[in-house]
């Protein structure tokens, strides 16, 4: 068991070298290499892509089948000393329901052997704004409150690496905003913060860097804006039914946002548009000026999976 200092964790962050994880014949994570430094990073991917598996390997809760997972330069697996510089908020929200919020955070502080556990617990509870409810039992908490108190236990020792699995799930907009501010602050202090999400907008608001995982593979990685551009500039496909499909097709071809129009054999149109916003704003105007009634407009590939698989192809 190698003891590592908090500064080592801060300097070296988290690194994955050719990491795979399989269960029997099922490959959950496929040859991922990434390194995370100070700041907030979003781990983005559709459900089932392997985000939780990656986080659990980083947190030492799963052994990689192949490759190396290092936290602060030391392997995370079978090495409890990494937890002195690492905090984890898992997606599974099980807590000891009979404890009060205060007891829960204080117990964490004590288990971390902090010099002044009570002060650390108070600070962590204030940080997540749970002071008011801290003396209530955890099983009386709402989902969002439970989430915040779990964040407090993960923060109580001021870890240099903070891992959060879907931290915004079950939070109302105000709590969400507050959590985002908190993560920003942690990142600005030079801590390595990694949170997973399957919702693009969450990542957009919190982090500059993104790691996109699709089907166990690292599909894209880097600056959020670059990836966002890839995502918005991908073609969008719509199907339209109208009172005059052929007339609408002609009119739409004049629009710069439209890349192609096809008349469907069964009636209706399939339109490929370069930009979502411009096209959806242009369509009503075109229809109005041509006196064509649009009966139905359906985006066909707006599932996250299709967005992500587009990214895989583009990267």
């Amino acid at each position: 068991m190698s003891a590592i200092s908090a500064t080592a964790v801060q300097q070296q962050g988290v690194s994955l070298q050719g990491v795979s994880k399989w269960y029997g014949n099922v490959v959950a994570v496929n040859d991922i290499t990434m390194s995370l430094g100070p700041g907030v990073t979003g781990l983005l991917g559709p459900n089932g892509a392997g985000k939780t598996t990656v986080l659990h390997m980083m947190a030492g809760f799963l052994a990689p089948s192949r490759g190396e997972v290092l936290v602060g330069g030391a392997p995370a697996w079978r090495n409890p000393s990494v937890y002195s510089g690492l905090g984890l908020v898992s997606e599974r929200e099980a807590v000891h329901g009979f404890l009060t919020g205060w007891e829960f955070v204080l117990a964490s502080a004590k288990l971390h052997r902090l010099a002044d556990p009570a002060a650390a617990a108070r600070r962590a509870i204030d940080l997540v704004e749970m002071a008011e409810a801290q003396h209530r039992r955890l099983d009386t908490y709402s989902k969002g409150m439970r989430q915040r108190i779990r964040v407090a236990t993960a923060l109580v020792h001021y870890p240099s690496v903070l891992l959060l699995d879907e931290p915004f799930n079950g939070m109302d907009p105000r709590q969400r905003m507050h959590m985002m501010d908190l993560l920003h602050e942690m990142g600005a202090q030079g801590r390595t913060v990694l949170f997973s999400s399957h919702i693009l907008e969450e990542v957009e608001q919190v982090s500059g860097t993104v790691q996109v995982i699709v089907a166990g593979r690292l599909a894209a990685s880097g600056d959020y804006r670059t990836i966002r551009r890839l995502m918005t500039h991908r073609p969008h496909v719509f199907t339209i039914r109208s009172s005059d499909d052929r007339g609408l097709a002609v009119a739409l071809m004049r629009e710069s946002s439209v890349a192609g129009v096809e008349l469907d054999a069964t009636g209706g149109l399939t339109v490929r548009a370069g930009d979502y916003g411009t096209f959806t704003r242009a369509l009503p105007k075109v229809a109005l000026s041509e006196r064509i009634r649009v009966q139905r407009l359906l985006p066909t590939d707006e599932s996250l999976e299709s967005v992500f698989s587009y990214l895989v192809g583009a990267s």
Partner: peptide
């Protein structure tokens, strides 16, 4: 998990 995620 809460107990395991401690440097104990």
């Amino acid at each position: 998990a809460h107990i395991l995620a401690k440097p104990l």
